[in-house]
Write a protein that binds this DNA or RNA. Sequence first.
DNA 1: ATCGTCAATAATGTCGACAATCCGATCGGT
DNA 2: ACCGATCGGATTGTCGACATTATTGACGAT
Lengths: 223, 223
Amino acid sequence: METRGQRSDAYHKLREAIVSGQYHPNERLVEASIAQRMGAGRTAVRAALVRLDQEGLVEIEPNRGARVRLISDREALEIEEVRAALEGMLARRAATRVTAEDLSALRQVITKMRERVEAGDSIGYSELNATFHQRIWTAADHPTASHLLGSLKSQGIRFQYQTALRPGRAQRSLREHEAIFGALKAHDEDSAETAMREHLAEVLDTLRWAIESQHRAARWLPG
Amino acid sequence: METRGQRSDAYHKLREAIVSGQYHPNERLVEASIAQRMGAGRTAVRAALVRLDQEGLVEIEPNRGARVRLISDREALEIEEVRAALEGMLARRAATRVTAEDLSALRQVITKMRERVEAGDSIGYSELNATFHQRIWTAADHPTASHLLGSLKSQGIRFQYQTALRPGRAQRSLREHEAIFGALKAHDEDSAETAMREHLAEVLDTLRWAIESQHRAARWLPG
DNA sequence: ATCGTCAATAATGTCGACAATCCGATCGGT
DNA sequence: ACCGATCGGATTGTCGACATTATTGACGAT
C-alpha cells in the first residue's frame, strides 16, 4: 500500500531545506513551486509556511508571500544571549542529574574535540560542540527549555561557524568545555552554571568580534 | 467599502479567547463552529489553529482535530524556570538601560502594589505584578527574549493566580519587587539580576507549594 | 529622458465540494 | 448480558477553481 511516503512532512522537509541552507535568507518561497518540488499539495505547503513563520524561520507578508527570514546581526546576538541564560540553567540542573552514561558520553566527545583541535579541523570541532551541548540538554531533562533552544539554534544557523574563525578560539573553547565537564562530574550546581555561563559569554564575545570584523571587511570591498 | 472588519485576525481572536479562558483545557476546537462563531472561513480558522499549535496553546492530533492544550504541573514549573532564567538576564540588561521614565513608571507601580497589598486585593496585585515585569522587559530592549516570555506567559496563564493564595506571600513579594527596583535605580547589573532571580525562585517555590496543596486537596475530595 | 498610467502576469487568499477518517451507536451472535 | 462487527453521522484533510492583490513592463504625455 502507498509506496510513496507522502505524509504531512511538508513541514519537516521544508524546514530541513531552509536550515541546511538550500534556500537563502530573503529568498522567496513560492507555494506552487515548493509544492511541486516536494510532491505535496499547495495546502500542505501553506500550512508548513504558517508554522515556519510562527517559528521564526520564515516571514509571511500578507498578499506578498513568504520568504526565508533574514536574521539580523543584532538578533543573532540576542539569540546567543537567550541561549546563554537557558543553557546556564540547564547546566545547573544537569549537575544533579547526569548519569554515568552521560558523563562517559561527554568525556568521549571532549576527547574527539581535542583531536579536532590538534588537527586544526574547525568545522569538525563545531559539530562536536553541538553534540556536547545537546547531551547536556538531555541530561538536564527539561523539555520546555530544550525545545526552545532547538528552535533558536536553527534560527542562528547562519552564524554557526562564524565563531570558529577567530584564531586561538578552539583551544580556549576546549578548556571551557573541560571546565563544564569537571563541574558536572563533581555534581556541583553552582560551578556548572558559572562554567557554562562563562563559556557562552566567551562565545558571545567571539560572535561580536566576528560580526564586527565582517563589517570591517565589507567596508574594504564595497559592493 | 466592506463595513465588516473581516481580517485575518481569526488567529488573534481565537488566541484571546483561549488565553482569557473562554475555552477550557482539553476542550475540542471544531473548525466549523469556530469559523461560524467568529465569522471567518474554515480556511482562516485552520491556519490559526496551526499557528496556535506551533505556539503551544493548542494541540492538533492528525485526523482528530484540535483541542486546547493542557499544561501539566510539571510543564508549568518548567515554564517558570525558563522565565526565571530569561528575566534574570533581562533585569541585568535593564540595569544599564533604564530611563528616568522607566524608573518613575516602576515606582508608580510599586506604590499601587503596596495599596493592593494593604487592601488584601490579591488579584489586583497579580495584575500589577504583570505590568511591573513587563515594564522591565521593555526597558531591557530585548525583543527576542520578550517575545519568548510573552508566549510562555500565555501558556502558563492557568496558574497565574495560584501563587497569590499562599498566606503572607504578597508582602514578601512586594519586598522583592522593591529590591529589584532599588537595583535598577542604582544601575547595578549584578544586584538586579540576583534580585530578580531570587524573586523568581520564591515564585517558583510558591508555585510548587500551590500545586502540592492542590494535590493534597484532591486526595481528600476524590471525584 | 522622466514620470505616471495602464495592462499583463504571477502569486496569494478564500471558498465550496468531496474524500478519508474517526467515534459512537446499533445490531446480532454467543 | 456481553462482546465484536458494522453502519451512520460528524469532522478533518485535500484538491481545484476563482477572486484579489501585488509586480512587472510597455506605452504615451509632458
